[in-house]
Amino acid sequence: MKISEKYGPVFTVHLGFQQTVVLTGYEAVKEALLNTADVFADRPAIPIFYHIQHGNGVFFSSQELWKTTRRFTMATMRDLGMGKRLSEERILEELHFLVDLIRSFKGGPFRLRFLNTAPTNITFAILFGRRFDYKDPTFVTLLRLIDEVMILLGSPFLHLFNFYPFLGFLFKPHKMILKKVEEVCVILNKYIKESKKNINGNNLTSYIDALVFKQQEEKDKTNTSFYDANILASALDLLMAGTETTSTTLQWAILLMMKYPEIQKKVHAEIVRVLGPGRLPTFEDRKNMPFTNAVIHEVQRFITLLPHVPRYTSADTYFKGYFIPKGTTVIPLLTSVLLDKTQWETPDEFNPNHFLDASGNFVKKKAFLPFSTGCACWIQ
């Protein structure tokens, strides 16, 4: 972002031997991701993720495989109740278990990561077709592995591996990640195998069931996208990305409420006013809780959870006066959009008023792009 102050919203950096174009600010990122989306739709082969997924899955595949897998995933999420009454009921059910967990500490301190159990279980219910008891060995193991992988993904040595993959023998984090991901895949393969054995097309209760059934439907096709490696990679994507983003956002929300008690009090007052004592929230309550809604959006804007999602140009293009050849890695810097001084009054401050008008009504902002405009939006 500091470089962009000198060179403008479009510039080139070298990440190892790779020449990468960076786009900063709302206008440049919007033009690339919305107005010329087809040109910037492909995904580059990031070494660590290529070693994990081998070009498969929802997030790190490209071209027709990415389009087909993403389209199928979006449709399956809707069929399984995402954004519908079924999803709301599942969340409210899980909330009871989370409240019981918090009460079990009897007012004593506990790690914030314990709060991850609830949103993770929601994703697991979609992935596997059922929720897990918080003490279930499989649930505990998956939580631990996801946490350990995410920590390793932030290692400076992992970035070096991505820049200079041929020097991988010198670095350790990527080897540890691959080992832990393999442990996750053993668990996923077990559920995929069970689904293949018991699949019932009239009763698909999970994302894995839907993948397996689609594979069986297309088993005679020579160019199907639903082969074993892509099924495993897609399930792995939902498991990792579908849990970590929500869980981390929740932890940040708690920390920010602690840091800004006056905002916490206003949120609490609105919850009490709208819900009253003892009633759990519903999706419809959002309309009557503009301040709470604004706070949730501001949390996601302020923490810039996903700094960028690299893209890959699918064709030669001219962009804002610059020629960008086909096959160029492009980084639309989402952080620069969420902190754009032309779009937010106080971009570096936690300020829920960014999403409120003068009358206190909630206002949607076009520059609110916490997960880009592509494959990860459904996670919200």
Results as ranks from 00 to 15, higher is better:
residue 101 L to V: 10
residue 364 K to E: 08
residue 183 E to D: 13
residue 157 F to H: 05
residue 243 T to L: 09
residue 35 N to K: 15
residue 7 Y to P: 05
residue 318 Y to H: 15
residue 259 K to C: 02
residue 131 R to N: 14
residue 156 P to C: 04
residue 298 E to A: 08
residue 216 Q to L: 12
residue 210 A to I: 11
residue 143 L to A: 03
residue 73 T to N: 03
residue 74 M to E: 12
residue 62 S to V: 06
residue 291 F to K: 05
residue 263 I to P: 00
residue 39 V to R: 12
residue 107 G to I: 01
residue 53 Q to F: 15
residue 208 I to W: 11
residue 269 A to C: 07
residue 373 T to A: 15
residue 163 F to Q: 12
residue 276 G to W: 12
residue 197 K to G: 02
residue 279 R to Y: 00
residue 286 R to P: 00
residue 355 F to R: 04
residue 339 L to W: 06
residue 96 H to L: 09
residue 207 Y to R: 09
residue 288 N to E: 07
residue 13 V to I: 15
residue 136 D to L: 04
residue 168 G to Y: 12
residue 322 Y to C: 14
residue 291 F to P: 03
residue 337 V to K: 10
residue 346 T to F: 11
residue 182 E to W: 06
residue 333 L to H: 11
residue 114 F to A: 09
residue 60 F to S: 12
residue 294 A to M: 09
residue 142 L to I: 12
residue 236 L to E: 03
residue 61 S to V: 14
residue 299 V to K: 02
residue 366 K to H: 09
residue 27 E to H: 13
residue 118 A to R: 14
residue 310 P to Y: 07
residue 53 Q to H: 10
residue 241 A to E: 01
residue 242 G to L: 09
residue 24 T to D: 01
residue 73 T to K: 02
residue 333 L to N: 15
residue 26 Y to W: 12
residue 378 W to D: 05
residue 98 L to G: 02
residue 40 F to K: 07
